[in-house]
Computed example of a mutant assay.
Amino acid sequence: MIIDQLILGKKTPKSKFDTDKKSERPIRSIAKAVSWRVIGTLDTLLISYVLTGEVAIAASIASIDFVTKMFLYFFHERIWNKINWGK
């Protein structure tokens, strides 16, 4: 093992993410959560504005929606990442 590293230039894995390609780093889940929430929040903002006709109310609804659903999505992703079904 040490000889392989010296002769072949193999590096020891730094974390389980380097060897387990079925898993993803939490930072990736965060980036996915934020990007999805931007899309979802724009949708919520538009729908809220169409229904209420008030920009301030629509912005309030969209901002609350952005924060709560981002956290829900992040934990949803992390739980699903631990489930091996379908991988």
Results as ranks from 00 to 15, higher is better:
87 K>W: 12
29 S>H: 09
16 K>A: 13
29 S>E: 00
17 F>P: 00
72 L>P: 05
66 F>A: 13
42 L>G: 15
48 S>A: 15
8 L>F: 14
85 W>F: 15
57 I>C: 04
46 L>Q: 01
62 A>K: 00
49 Y>A: 09
20 D>M: 09
4 D>C: 03
37 R>F: 02
7 I>S: 09
82 K>I: 07
47 I>H: 07
9 G>F: 07
75 F>H: 06
10 K>W: 09
7 I>R: 12
18 D>C: 03
84 N>T: 10
41 T>D: 05
80 W>P: 00
9 G>T: 08
7 I>Y: 08
18 D>S: 07
47 I>R: 12
53 G>W: 01
43 D>Y: 14
59 A>K: 01
20 D>V: 06
61 I>V: 15
77 E>K: 12
68 T>K: 11
68 T>M: 11
56 A>M: 09
80 W>L: 14
33 A>K: 00
3 I>P: 02
6 L>G: 00
29 S>I: 00
75 F>I: 06
26 P>R: 03
26 P>D: 03
16 K>S: 14
21 K>V: 09
78 R>H: 04
87 K>C: 11
50 V>S: 03
21 K>Y: 13
18 D>P: 02
55 V>Q: 04
66 F>V: 00
77 E>I: 05
32 K>L: 11
47 I>C: 04
81 N>F: 13
32 K>E: 12
67 V>E: 11
83 I>E: 06
44 T>W: 01
26 P>V: 01
57 I>P: 02
16 K>R: 13
8 L>S: 05
48 S>P: 01
64 I>M: 12
84 N>R: 12
23 S>P: 00
77 E>T: 06
22 K>Q: 14
33 A>F: 00
14 K>T: 08
37 R>S: 11
42 L>S: 15
56 A>E: 13
31 A>Y: 08
37 R>Y: 00
82 K>D: 14
63 S>W: 00
48 S>L: 07
84 N>M: 07
63 S>Y: 02
58 A>T: 05
60 S>C: 04
74 F>Y: 15
61 I>L: 06
86 G>Q: 02
5 Q>F: 01
72 L>N: 10
27 I>N: 01
